[in-house]
Design a protein around this nucleic acid. Sequence first.
DNA 1: AATAAATTAAAACAAACGTTCAAAACTATT
DNA 2: AATAGTTTTGAACGTTTGTTTTAATTTATT
Lengths: 213, 213
Amino acid sequence: METSLNSTKSLIIKAALGIFAQKGFKGATVREICAAADQSVGAINYHFRDKQGLYEAVTQALLEELMLNTSPEPQNSSTMQPEARLHFLVTSFLKRFGMLFDGGDNGQRAIFMLREILNPSADFTRLFLSFQAWQKDYLLRIISDLTGCRPESPEVARSAISIIGQCFHFVFGRRLFGLLGMEASQAKEISKCAEHIVKFSLGGVKAVTGAKK
Amino acid sequence: METSLNSTKSLIIKAALGIFAQKGFKGATVREICAAADQSVGAINYHFRDKQGLYEAVTQALLEELMLNTSPEPQNSSTMQPEARLHFLVTSFLKRFGMLFDGGDNGQRAIFMLREILNPSADFTRLFLSFQAWQKDYLLRIISDLTGCRPESPEVARSAISIIGQCFHFVFGRRLFGLLGMEASQAKEISKCAEHIVKFSLGGVKAVTGAKK
DNA sequence: AATAAATTAAAACAAACGTTCAAAACTATT
DNA sequence: AATAGTTTTGAACGTTTGTTTTAATTTATT
């Protein structure tokens, strides 16, 4: 069984990703997908059993690609300054999801992902959780260390939303920025964005908690 | 022509909003919508011409509801301190969109809106812009006044993304927070959230620009 | 109360859809 | 070169979909 990049399976998955992203599961038709992949309609039944199986294969492929860019929590985390841990967290977030805009597909993988966040399938939820869950407590701990507040306090929880919200928006906010008339072009330079988010957030958390530091 | 809240048109629009939100335009079927509204399938043709017309009526109704909660730029804006202007902007954003979670529909209007942001229809884009456009320059000016930086500078642009990103996430981020294992329950208390975002952002903009103030 | 207009109801239709299947084409093995 | 297994093809099928249509019912007007 060939599994090269130009195999029938790969061609169909690639085409399906783009069309699912644009039109959703119901909106995309198997004929349309096969035409885009230059394959016959029977190929979906043969390689993926049915349309649903194809969709799951697309989800799987995207999440596996995302896995490759995933860094685990660093080993020397306990010895790192909270500022450095925050920088690491923000950078890994921007890298992991910012990658979805590379590859010349005009961000179709990102749109597919946003669709899944809006209506998560079981597969997506499980896999997404498995490599994302550690970040919650990690971030709460960082803010706690920065401010001296307890990790369970509402100020820390709200600050976490502020920080994740910034990260999310620097990556996925293009659609909204377009509607608001803003430009998100600079979101491409990951290190510059990360630096901004870290500095902004350090100032933010100290402002909301009145941290002496 | 009756236009009461229990008219056939209203019943169908209400039911359609929920089903469009859950399943998208293609995923929703007219039979399903009419069954939910307890009306016959012919009603859609009679009142909205076709499914597309119904969708546009739903969009229109949602945007009109949104319009009612829209405050224009305040008259005494030029005399207000930038901090007060920021507070006004954040509060009006949270009020306007936070409303989408009220009404006991479990946020279906919000999900409908997120779908439109993901794949904007022409109607939506035009109407959304018409009552949202002023906020861009207004926000850039606030940050400029707070920091002394030029409104066109990249620091100001990035700070604007940070602020809008926070607002957006405090309102719409529930889906993502669920995936991340966070709670967004406190997002309901608008004034508390607004206060947080303003304080956090004031600290943030000063940190990234090194404002003396 | 009678008539006209507007609305509702449900059956019928045509188009589009996902799926199936038998034949053809291709690959690998002997 | 012959054969067995794998993959590809595209027409055919049954279902679901949006829409239309015609009759029944309700509402408004005289």
